[in-house]
Write a protein that binds this DNA or RNA. Structure first.
Length: 866
RNA sequence: GCCCGGGUGGUGGAACUGGUAGACACUAGGGACUUAAAAUCCCUUGCCGUAAAUAUGGCGUGCCGGUUCAAUUCCGGCCCCGGGCACCA
């Protein structure tokens, strides 16, 4: 029934030289990944196995990795973790009959290549090409099943032609506009930064403190989509923390806009509008604060206060973002001399300026309610401004006058609102303001428009022509792409403009509208631009007439699973969602959201070794005594920590080295066996060994297959079905580590108790998504033909996954005292009776009264006695 | 300061909606095979006791308290680590 297996190519391996004195019969099976992995990669490529063609007869699945920036240092094991996960899912889905789209490409515009060009004069295109080739080689060596026919590269003119085309659609809809405004400027990168790119006052990329600089810039009106970017988060299956970050970044607050009338001075009678989330505290507004940059400051300031106000404005201007955030603990400000009237009670209140009020949020002005806002409280205390309580806690004592009471409560000192609850007062006052024409309900967002221009060379040129007569004119679509010209030097020009501004020949052009002389836009797009729509280009990468066809979009969208680092939780994901919504409005895509399910891989950490001066050393310079690290050269004892992999910390692991030593299948297996996919986890070079051993045991199992060693029949039938079920369910939850553990248990059992053919075939199929090279090799070795990717994923029979007998544990007063075996169908009465008969249980209930017995079917019996 | 994650053996980590804590793996120790080594296989490995042959009692999931017959899991308070935000009115 079971045919004898042909001799294994696996048994050859290294043994070619030793073959002379080792007879095949007693050959120890060898697992030689360096032989079988290239062999199968070659066969897969020759068969075009990973090419995807849409098939309406099959369900579709779109699995996307965040495409990498091809850096010069190559792929690291952190990339491989996410790619391994999506590869496993892809193979698993394909075996289940899905047609799976799983592409890869390059986010290749960016600063490192450009900075390298500035240093060396080598064109970024050249370094990028080299880096891409290296990445490609590395990715292929891990055996990932990407459909390379769909490869995209954001720096390819045939790609950025469409990035520019999309920009023009934005421009046409009024979603891209020019503005001269103080922007975040990184003096080191010599370029403007979007709000999202400044972290704690520092440039996100290089850590240099950001400055303010007024330059002509392009902006995208992302704020117009704030509400939809928020609402549609309800449709997606994303990590809770990422959803929260997006929500916080958009920062919607509901409240009211209130108009205060200025009293006295040259601005007498003018309206001063503020935004507040607490209109209920209007009676407690005892002063107002404008941001130092507010346009009305000029007119409201009295001659006596002019000096102080000017000085304060100057001081605020000089403060960098860093100082405004980190160091601005102590409140500061200046009185303008002007007054405004509180519309609630007609009282005149002073108007101040202070930099704790931001020019860019709300209306750039606030009503200050020191009794119920911490910041206003602090400011009022410092400048001795009146504090009037208008909200009392529903019960218990208030925090005043020691601290502001910021909770909701019951209104006091608020005229006819006294005694009402905060929520009610908010509505009542807003309504009244509206009827008096001095206010209305309002919503404000923290989100700002997206600064979309960079003064850099290595990016997509913004396809705009500046004409003295017609203004900014979009480049006609048939003239796209506006290609990057060759330049002599890559440095930004002295004026802060991009190097493109120095290429006269390229710069000068004809206005598409009037035919007069005009100049090209010299700003380029930020790196995020290309990644805002790459997932759409994969659908139809060769299309020369349009960015993608409607048909392809309908067939493949949404992305069913998107995997990438959590560092993109705000930037890339917000920008891509924004573009997608604009494309939706243009009728170019049919879904509101691009990425249905999103998961982040956890960061891969590794040990670092540093001396007392915090200088890092590579493993090669370290020796271990009693497991403790010492520097070989000096014998100094080193400090060992577990940190994120970084070049500077010398703790990076190159997948090439792992593949050379253990093979790609072992690398893949270890990547996902390390720990839970979404959590950070340390790379332990020793633990890889276990994964390699596991694969070798599988090889032996097949190699030494001997049906006579196993008990008759199909002894592992239930275990087999249970294993299928568990692996399947774990993959569904992306719990790869436990799926592998289940496979290990199965292999352990088969190794000790022998296997039937069915076991080996099932095992090979189950292992295939994880270790595809080895699986295909074993499949062939078992006399089968074809690739496992085209085989059917094993199916389990639910009935057979149940145990024939289950262990029932017996507790007395919650403490484990014994156990017994029972049928899973045993009744509660039977279980209870059996529990009392367990010998070990008896002494614990002797002489006691049984008060209660709890029986949990298939699990336990708890006897409560006392 | 606020908002999220997370604290489980020597180590990485398991444990579905409360029901045998420590699956699976690594390390370490012991043994088998071998001329030897590697590989492989078997045993032990949370801690503390009693017994020391099979055995057996207690403690134990960051800390303190609560709910429950039963808590790694639920609730309240606190400590530590990682990430995000940081005057957003």
């Amino acid at each position: 029934m079971t045919p004898a297996l042909p001799p294994s190519p696996l048994t050859k391996g290294k043994g070619r030289e030793s073959g002379a004195h080792v007879t095949p019969e007693i050959a120890v099976s060898k697992y030689n990944p360096s032989e079988i992995e290239p062999k199968w990669q070659k066969r897969w490529a020759e068969a075009g196995l990973h090419k995807t063609a849409y098939d309406p007869a099959k369900p579709k699945y779109y699995v996307l990795d965040m495409f990498p920036y091809p850096s010069g240092s190559g792929l690291h094991v952190g990339h491989c973790e996410g790619y391994t996960a999506t590869d496993i899912i892809t193979r698993w889905k394909r075996m289940q009959g899905y047609v799976v789209l799983h592409p890869m490409g390059w986010d290749a515009f960016g600063l490192p290549a450009e900075n390298y060009a500035i240093k060396t004069g080598i064109h970024p295109r050249v370094t990028t090409e080299q880096a891409v080739a290296n990445f490609r080689r590395q990715i292929d060596s891990v055996g990932f099943c990407y459909d390379w026919d769909r490869e995209v590269n954001t720096t390819d003119p045939s790609y950025y032609k469409w990035t520019q085309w999309i920009f023009l659609q934005f421009f046409r809809k009024g979603l891209a506009y020019e503005g001269v405004m103080p922007i975040n400027w990184c003096p080191s990168c010599k370029t403007g930064l979007a709000n999202e790119e400044v972290k704690g006052g520092l440039c996100e990329r290089c850590g240099t403190p950001a400055e303010r600089k007024a330059l002509r810039q392009w902006l995208l009106r992302i704020t117009r989509y704030a509400d939809r970017l928020l609402e549609d988060l309800a449709e997606v299956d994303w990590p809770e923390s990422t959803l929260l970050m997006q929500k916080n970044w958009i920062g919607r607050s509901e409240g009211a806009e209130v108009a205060f009338r200025i009293s006295g001075g040259s601005a007498d009678g003018q309206e001063l509008r503020v935004f507040t989330t607490r209109p209920d505290t209007l009676f407690g507004a005892t002063y107002m604060v404008l941001s130092p940059e507010h346009e009305i400051v000029e007119r409201i300031t009295t001659p006596e206060q002019r000096g102080a106000v000017k000085a304060y404005q100057e001081q605020a201007r000089r403060k960098s973002d860093l100082e405004r955030t980190d160091l601005a603990k102590e409140k500061s400000g200046a009185f303008t001399g002007g007054y405004a009237v509180n519309p609630a009670n007609g009282k005149k209140i002073p108007v101040w300026i202070a930099d704790y009020v931001l020019a860019t949020y709300g209306t750039g002005a606030i009503m200050a309610v020191p009794a119920h806002d911490e910041r206003d409280f602090e400011f009022a205390t410092k400048f001795k401004l009146p504090i009037i309580e208008v909200v009392k806690p529903v019960q218990g004592p208030t925090t005043l006058p020691q601290a502001a009471f910021i909770e909701d409560g019951i209104s006091v000192n608020s005229g006819d609102c006294d005694g009402l609850a905060t929520a009610e007062v908010k509505k009542k006052i807003t309504k009244r303001l509206a009827s008096e024409g001095s206010g209305k309900a309002a919503v404000t967002y923290r989100l700002r428009d997206w600064l979309f221009s960079r003064q850099r060379y290595w990016g997509e040129p913004i396809p705009i022509v500046h004409c003295p007569k017609c203004g900014a004119v979009g480049v006609p679509e048939e003239q796209l792409p506006v290609a990057l010209p060759e330049v002599e030097r890559y440095e930004p020009s002295g004026t802060g403009e991009s190097p493109l501004a120095t290429i006269e020949q390229w710069l000068r052009t004809i206005c598409p509208k009037c035919g007069g002389n005009a100049k090209r836009e010299t700003n380029t797009m930020p790196q995020w631009a290309g990644s805002c729509w790459y997932y759409l280009r994969y659908l139809d990468p060769e299309n020369g007439r349009e960015p993608w066809s409607k048909k392809a979009e309908k067939q493949w969208m949404n992305v069913d699973l998107y995997v990438g680092g959590a560092e993109h939780a705000v930037l890339h994901l917000l920008y891509a969602r924004f573009w997608h919504k604009v494309l939706y409005d243009l009728g170019l895509v049919s879904t509101k959201e691009p990425f249905k399910k999103l998961r982040h891989q956890g960061t891969v950490l590794a040990r670092t070794y540093s001396d007392s001066r915090r200088k890092y050393y590579p493993l090669s310079e370290i020796e271990f005594k009693n497991d403790e690290p010492y520097l070989k050269a000096t014998g100094e004892k080193l400090q060992c920590e577990i940190e994120k992999m970084a070049k500077t910390k010398l703790n990076g692991i190159n997948p090439d080295d792992v593949i050379m030593q253990y093979g790609a299948d072992t690398l893949r297996l270890y990547e996902i066996f390390m720990g839970e996919f979404e959590l950070p986890k340390p790379w332990d070079p020793r633990a890889i060994e276990g994964c390699n051993r596991f694969l070798r045991r599988i090889v032996r199992l097949v190699d030494e297959f001997d049906p006579s060693k196993v008990s008759p029949g199909d002894p592992h039938k239930r275990l087999r079905h249970r294993t299928i079920k568990q692996v399947h369910c774990d993959l569904d939850r992306m719990h790869f580590n436990t799926a592998v553990a289940r496979l290990m248990e199965y292999v352990n059992e088969l190794s000790s108790a022998g296997a039937v053919r069915e076991d080996l075939e099932t095992l090979t199929k189950l292992v295939a998504p994880f270790a595809p090279h080895l699986a295909d090799e074993l499949w062939e070795r078992m006399g089968k033909s074809g690739f496992l990717l085209t085989q059917q994923w094993p199916v389990y029979d639910e009935k057979l996954t149940a145990f024939e007998q289950v262990t029932i544990v017996v507790q007395v007063n919650g403490k484990l005292r014994g156990d017994f075996l029972a049928s899973p169908d045993a009744t509660q009465e039977e279980l209870q009776k059996a529990a009392f008969d367990v010998p070990k249980v008896k002494p614990h209930i002797e002489g006691k009264t049984v008060r209660k017995v709890i029986v949990v079917p298939k699990k336990l019996v708890n006897i409560v006695a006392g």
